[in-house]
Nucleic acid binder design. Structure first.
Lengths: 209, 209, 209, 209
DNA sequence: CATGAATGAGAGTTCATTCAT
DNA sequence: GATGAATGAACTCTCATTCAT
């Protein structure tokens, strides 16, 4: 009876392992050729499977994409956390935000993914469940920033709002930079981000007085 | 002799009219079902044509999209201009920016379109020519804002940077709001925009001293 | 009443002139991009017309092609005639044949055209009338050769057969050379033609004894 | 463990069988309506498939064509080989060549196919790989003829050249006959081929002395 | 679990030709 | 005569997904 459970556990472990392998293949395909080339055929082929096999692990293509994005957000989260973990309180928030910006500059594809999946209503076939999961990830990413801001002395509510405001600024810069519009408009993403963050910190420091 | 010119002119007028009708059909299809459903077949059908007929008016699908976006930007431009044309100098910049925000809140599909087409040349089938044209439109949209900011006394360079920074903020807010993330994060787009613009104006007022 | 005839004649002359202009445009398009690119649109555009206009001069695309081929055969005919007009009787036949070969080496597109129009039963939309016309052209092209061969002393019947046999050899060489197979098989068209013609002349010289 | 291999083998066998069925359908379509009508849609329909299904068996239309031609060349090869395998050395070469001629007289469509596909790489969608394969087939078809000619005592080089010269003659006769020009010129393909081959054999016999 | 054949829908685009103006 | 819009049919090919094996 215990044997049966063990078998089930092992089976599940194997399943998870293979699922991870598929996700890894998807990651490779996606990083190599962008969303366009990340078709089920291609992912399956890269993973050493045939198309049908993927459906034992993912019910639809968008779910793979969601996992991809989830992983990306996890890594982003680690990056942001690390960046905002050290240094004196004044600089932590800015460092976290800057890490967010730098992450996407280094992973432009992941930005596309986010834009694709978070796009519009209906959100590209994402189930509410998946949507909730991704939201959780996003909140997790922002927490260290929010805490760092709160550490500057403002209330939690203000900190949350400032965090999201910064998020908006960062997303806007990334979006316009990725689409080449920033260059057309004669601005540098790095400058804009730097300025925004400096003012944010100044604002909060003043607010504290 | 004048008759020939008249005929040609009338013909051209008719052509333009039909082209506009096609664009209108595209707009309807697009607003009804998003970019996904805006296929040549669908547009043609909505316009009362067979697919091939569209190619007398547009050489490729992306050109229709580009016209769609161009029209949208034109209307956006008028909205922004009108909003930033009146009132005392202190409020003009903010009013222009807010009009930008409000426009896209009222035309969420146009935001999708912009995100799709402004993803850079090559990726989408935009010719450099079309890309340039759209860039021009965008710059035109921003000019009244930039001028209003410059009217607050800062130099042109600062005005341009502030304009783009505001654009980033607005785009970020719109993006996150459209994707439903803002709600998840417990923030209101209107608040964020309001706060950003207030601070921007304050910043510029201080800088002037 | 004479005036009416004159008008009709002038009209016909103009018609013929424009028809020639269209044919010329077709020739340019065809020589520039081969049969593939010689669409009605392209030809019309090159001729400064719109597609529909061509149908006042040619009832179908294949008729333009036929005229193209007819012109080509006319020029080929002149080339062959000139080549076989001079020199001593021994060499005339060979010279004519070689001119045939050289012509198509220099006008590979015309060979394609011939292959296209003379292909299979039904002959690509050619009317019997057009087919007869092209046959006449072909016979005209061969006549100087046939006469040169007959001039070597064999009977007319033999001369005709030898002419056609040579035509077959030349077409075969041209076909295989144009398709790149000759190179694959390690042979040179010029050599093959030279050898064939030398033997043909020898054969006829012997037969005369 | 052997079971898996068996399964794989059976699968492959089934695949091959179905592929052959598709090729057969293509053959039927092609023989019924020529190359023009041999579209993917038509072939799929004839084979009882939807168009997309064909792409599990052939990556592109030209690959089906290539297989069609390959099969045809294989059968041609067998015919030529058999014909040139028996009889005394004097007649073998001629018999092989005549078999070549007779084959295409009996399979006029295959001639069209060869003319279409052998028009060189690039022009048609043949990959270099396919082109090479078809070249190999062609060389294989010619080998028995070349050997029979060499068996008459001339050197290998001469044999190769004579073989290709004969090929040219045969192709020329077939081309002109298929296009109806031979009849117009008052000649019979059979006669021309017979005469050419007789002279070829005589030439080689003389050269041997 | 994995296969891979097959579906079914659809994509954008091209073309010769027709015909009202 | 000339326009050029419009047709209607065709084209190859791609895709996510399903399902019998």
């Amino acid at each position: 009876m215990v044997a049966r459970e063990q078998r089930a556990a092992r089976r599940e472990a194997v399943h998870g392992f293979k699922r991870a392998a598929i996700l890894d293949a998807a990651k490779r395909v996606f990083h190599a050729g962008g969303l366009e080339s990340a078709s089920m055929r291609e992912i399956a082929s890269e993973a050493g499977y045939t198309p049908g096999a993927l459906y034992s692990y993912y019910p639809a293509k968008e779910h793979i994409y969601a996992d991809l994005l989830s992983d990306s957000l996890a890594e982003l989260g680690r990056t942001v956390r690390d960046a905002s973990a050290t240094g004196d309180p004044q600089t932590r928030a800015g460092a976290g935000c800057h890490a967010f910006y730098a992450y996407y500059r280094g992973h432009p594809m992941d930005l596309d993914l986010g834009l694709y999946l978070f796009q519009g209503i209906g959100r590209r076939g994402l189930t509410p469940e998946l949507d909730r999961q991704l939201n959780g990830r996003l909140i997790g990413v922002l927490r260290p920033i929010s805490e760092a801001i709160a550490g500057l002395g403002c209330g939690q509510e203000t900190a949350d709002q400032e965090t999201v405001a910064a998020l908006c600024q960062l997303c806007g810069v990334l979006l316009l930079e990725r689409s080449g519009r920033l260059k057309v408009l004669g601005q540098e993403g790095e400058d804009l981000v730097g300025k925004y963050l400096a003012e944010m910190v100044a604002r909060l420091a003043i607010g504290r007085d």
